[in-house]
Amino acid sequence: MLIKRSEDIPSSDITPESTYLNRRKFIAGFGLGGALGSSMIRSQFDSAKVLEDEFSRTQKDWSRVRSDLDEELNSYEDVTTYNNFYEFGTGKDDPAKNSHTLKPHPWNIEVDGLCAKRGTYGLEEFIKPRNMEDRVYRLRCVEAWSMVIPWYGFSLKEVIDWAEPLGSARYIEFTSLYNLEQMPMQRSFVLEWPYVEGLRLDEARHPLTILVTGVYGRELPNQNGAPLRLIVPWKYGFKGIKSIVKIRFTETQPLNTWQQSTPREYGFYANVNPGVDHPRWSQARERRLGELRKRPTLMFNGYGEQVANLYSGMDLRLNF
């Protein structure tokens, strides 16, 4: 593990502010960008205060950032106070209130199944070699609301290429943390725990599919799935599994939690599709948080040009 918990670090070890600021400049000067640099600094000075200071100095002017369709971002407050993360309660504000019990550092990722790189990796070594960047995506929840969010992360494809899946691997399965102390609501029977999600390997390799470690240029808050979550922007939000502890390559299609819970209502693919309603409500429109009038939902959440070919010849009514 490369991550130290804050209580392990004597205050004398914490680099004076001026020094780490200089180091940031130094790293930036070599063209590595904030990405690699900040993740290293983050891991070494994992103290909330230091992080807060550091990020506040490196903030972009997010108010000018737009999505590919020239949409405004939802506020940091929207993104971090309105969440579905049933491990901390089923109310939208429950995760923000209750997820302080989650301990995202230290964190291990287990890589398993049909691949060459099976083993357990500390989060830092797992993410360090990746090319981190900001990605502004629409997030469309199956409940018919949506947001525009500037994630920070890297292509899942990088991990797949690194893991060297065997020829027989066709799917990738993700598992969330199962820990009753850190996620007390896992005592409830709302869903089967731990949460599981999956993708076809070609979906997982798609350049739009990312693993996320941050949002709005800051470390991912617990309620958003710290320290590592999946984002597949053309699929309903529940595919974006949070607080991932395990990645497994399989030959057979994984059984994702919501499909397991209510197979009639939630499928494996869960592609955003205004033409295929949820059995109980319409998917034709959505409320973008912050807007009054509902807006039409876009096929594949507006990413059809990039992803429609993944599903050519498939009946999307049957494979919902």
């Binding site: 939802n74 929207d78 106070t81 309105y82 939208k92 609301w145 409320r287 912050g290």
Partner: peptide
């Protein structure tokens, strides 16, 4: 006073 969360209508 705008204290009904991110989705006040809901």
């Amino acid at each position: 006073t705008g204290r009904l969360g991110a989705n006040p209508i809901e």
